[in-house]
Design a protein around this nucleic acid. Sequence first.
DNA 1: CCTACCGATCGGTAGG
DNA 2: CCTACCGATCGGTAGG
Lengths: 211, 211
Amino acid sequence: MKDVSANLRPTRRIDRRSAGVAPVTGADVYEAALTAFADRGYFGTSLKDIANAVGLQAPSLYNHISSKADLLSEIVLDTLSTVFADFEAAVAAHDNPVDQLREATYVYALHHATHRRETMVVNQDARHLEGKSLEQAQDMRRTHERDFRRLIADGIKDGYFQHPSPKLASFAIREMCVSVARWFHDQGDLKPEDVARTYASQALRVVGVTP
Amino acid sequence: MKDVSANLRPTRRIDRRSAGVAPVTGADVYEAALTAFADRGYFGTSLKDIANAVGLQAPSLYNHISSKADLLSEIVLDTLSTVFADFEAAVAAHDNPVDQLREATYVYALHHATHRRETMVVNQDARHLEGKSLEQAQDMRRTHERDFRRLIADGIKDGYFQHPSPKLASFAIREMCVSVARWFHDQGDLKPEDVARTYASQALRVVGVTP
DNA sequence: CCTACCGATCGGTAGG
DNA sequence: CCTACCGATCGGTAGG
């Protein structure tokens, strides 16, 4: 079917230079990329998609970014370093494995509820990074995995936890937190803190600790 | 740097019609697509990638498939229907929530260990389906989610399980199983059955059941 | 911040 | 199963 109205009211493309519109910032672009990457994935998102979301033409994005890949690596590396810092702070704040695991799980689950888009992009698109960004991301992820597993292994060795496999317990606990980003919605009945608290006690149950 | 050898030994493109090579089957294409989609995602995989993996030129794929989207929907719908059938069989095989949840978790975790590529594609690329395939996939997933959660809710109501939220318990248990596909490798020390057994008992711990 | 444009690649078709 | 080819779209550059 032909859209006749297109002839009468042709799409007017606004030129932001001459319109009285506030200029777009780098933060705006970052935000739009976050939403688009989380929704449709890195390869499912074109620069045109991002540009249109902030009201620009695609080439204008290059006033704010240096490349599409760079946008992805910013999101991924920012997020991973925050997550790891949260983990370290949680462990440092306590002196026994039970409280350390409870707190580490709490902040991890919480971050996935409060930063859904960022964590989804990390988990689905970090593998599409290349070169040094990819290495940095892999390093941070591996360190977090290693330290999380060590916390559990030590807790088992010292008799705080009961579990046949620190490896499986660690994967199970971390991944159930990661998945919060997939289903959590702010409009629901649950607040991020509620979810985080419940996940922390689920983590303790997984390693055999009951209150 | 110029690759001089390219001039001396130009890439010979084999024409499978005249070479003494067994013809490619639809199953070969399905296999190659599975590996490629799981590794790099649906939009990160081109038909040329899949064709080259089975030794064909890209247009020749159309002797085996009707479109790229159709290849994805086959993988996703096949996998989801198997997973749901496994769940129903597990529940039907037992008459109490504890055994039902143990068995349902066991088969779910097992499937993610033994069909890593299929389940990864479902979890990362099902959202890229369109039209009727997308609806079918969403329907099957929702039904599985609903029935899994109902199993847990009934178990709580009847006093078999202790947990403040069937919704959170259900998400946690299902998603920790889903993530098995991400880290499990056949060459490791653990067999799929070992992982599934451990995950089944983790699930029971999450809902407050200790042996 | 825009328009105009670049080479590369995409999924897919025609024809043999 | 191939070669030749299609229009569309991709990330990105030039120039103002």
